[in-house]
C-alpha cells in the first residue's frame, strides 16, 4: 500500500480541476480520481489528528477522520466508538449501534468521568459541527435568535463548553458553508472563540484551531484572530468563499489548493463506512429521511460483518 500521507508526491492541479461533488463534470484530468466532498473533508480532518489522545466519534465525519488518521499517520490515537463507550475500536458509523460496536470488537469501555478527565487533561480531540461558527471562532449549537426567546431552539451546549475551556486544539467543520452557518457573530456562544472574554477568563485554552467547510480550510490567523483561508478545495475560488461568507475572509494570493484524498485514503474511508452514513450529513428533507431509513434497516448486518475476527479469541 502506498503511503497516503505522502502528499508532496502527488500531482496538484493548477488549472481549476472539477469541484469534488457528485455533480462534477466528466472533464477531469486523467490523474484526478473520483471522490466526493465528504471524503475530501474527512481526509483534511484526519490530517489534523496526531499523538496519543482520545478521539471522540460524535459524528460520522469525525469518526471516519479519527479512523483514517489512526490507519495512516497517527497509529497511537485512541479512537472511541461513540461519544462515551469504548476505545480501541474501528468506528463504523451507524445510527444506533455505537455501544454495540464496543462489545462486538471487544473495545475497552470508558465512563463519562474518563471522557471528561481526558478533556480536562487536554488528552482529547474532537471534530465538532456547530450550527453557527463565527469570524472570531465562537460556535453555537444552542439557539438561533436570543436565548430566552429563540427563533429556533436548537439542542443546548452539551459538552462544548468543557472542550473550549480545556483543550489546546479545537476543530470545527460545517458541511454547508453559507451566511447561515458561517456568521459575523454567533447568536449564542456555546463555545468560546477568540475575544476579550476568552483572554480575560481562559488564557490560552479554548483556542479554535481549524475550520473545514465544503469550500475550504480556514483558521483564525487573520487580523485580531479573525477567520482566514488556509486552502480552498479544488474548483473553489476566493470569490465563491466571499459570496458564502457575510464578512471579509483574509485570503492569501495565491491561495493553496486543498490536497485531494489519495486512493489509499479513499479506500480506507469507504471500507470503514459501508453504509455511507457520512453522506447523511450533507442531505436534508426527504433525501435525508430515505437515506436514514435505508441505513437503519441495513446496519445490524454491517455490525455483524465488522466483528474483528483477529482480536483475541477465547
Amino acid at each position: 500500500m502506498s503511503d497516503p500521507t505522502a502528499e508532496g508526491t502527488r500531482p496538484q492541479s493548477e488549472a481549476a480541476p472539477p469541484a469534488p461533488t457528485d455533480s462534477a463534470p466528466n472533464t477531469a484530468p486523467p490523474y484526478t480520481i473520483d471522490y466526493t466532498i465528504d471524503e475530501l473533508m474527512i481526509t483534511v480532518m484526519a490530517r489534523q489528528l496526531q499523538g496519543e489522545v482520545l478521539v471522540s466519534s460524535v459524528t460520522a465525519l469525525g469518526a471516519l477522520a479519527a479512523h483514517l488518521a489512526k490507519r495512516t499517520h497517527a497509529p497511537d490515537l485512541a479512537v472511541l466508538s461513540t461519544p462515551e463507550s469504548g476505545m480501541e475500536v474501528a468506528p463504523i458509523p451507524t445510527l444506533t449501534l455505537g455501544q454495540f460496536l464496543t462489545d462486538a470488537q471487544q473495545g475497552i469501555p470508558l465512563t463519562m468521568e474518563d471522557i471528561f478527565d481526558a478533556i480536562f487533561l487536554d488528552r482529547f480531540r474532537i471534530w465538532i459541527n456547530p450550527a453557527q461558527v463565527d469570524r472570531h471562532g465562537h460556535v453555537n449549537i444552542t439557539a438561533i435568535g436570543p436565548w430566552d426567546h429563540p427563533k429556533v431552539a436548537l439542542v443546548g451546549s452539551r459538552g462544548i463548553p468543557e472542550d473550549t475551556s480545556h483543550l489546546s486544539q479545537i476543530f470545527y467543520y460545517v458541511t454547508s458553508h453559507s451566511p447561515r452557518s458561517v456568521v459575523e457573530h454567533v447568536d449564542f456562544r456555546s463555545g468560546a472563540g477568540y475575544g476579550p472574554d476568552r483572554v480575560r477568563e481562559l488564557g490560552q485554552p479554548g483556542s479554535p484551531t481549524l475550520l473545514v467547510t465544503n469550500l475550504g480550510v480556514f483558521d483564525w490567523s487573520g487580523p485580531d484572530h479573525t477567520l482566514a483561508a488556509v486552502s480552498l478545495h479544488p474548483g473553489v475560488t476566493a470569490a465563491m468563499v466571499a459570496e458564502a461568507t457575510p464578512f471579509p475572509v483574509a485570503t492569501p494570493d495565491p491561495i493553496p489548493t486543498t490536497a485531494a484524498p489519495t486512493p489509499a485514503e479513499l479506500a480506507l474511508i469507504r471500507a470503514a463506512d459501508p453504509l455511507d452514513v457520512r453522506k447523511l450529513e450533507f442531505l436534508a428533507g426527504r433525501a435525508a429521511a430515505e437515506g436514514l431509513v435505508n441505513i437503519y434497516e441495513r446496519e445490524r448486518q454491517a455490525l455483524h460483518a465488522a466483528v474483528w475476527p483477529h482480536r483475541r479469541s477465547r
Binding site: 436565548w147 456562544r189 472563540g193
Partner: peptide, 13 residues
C-alpha cells in the same frame, strides 16, 4: 469548582 463555561454565554443565561 470548574473552568467549564468561561468564555461562553452559558454563564450569561
Amino acid at each position: 469548582p470548574t473552568h467549564v463555561g468561561l468564555g461562553t454565554d452559558v454563564l450569561a443565561v
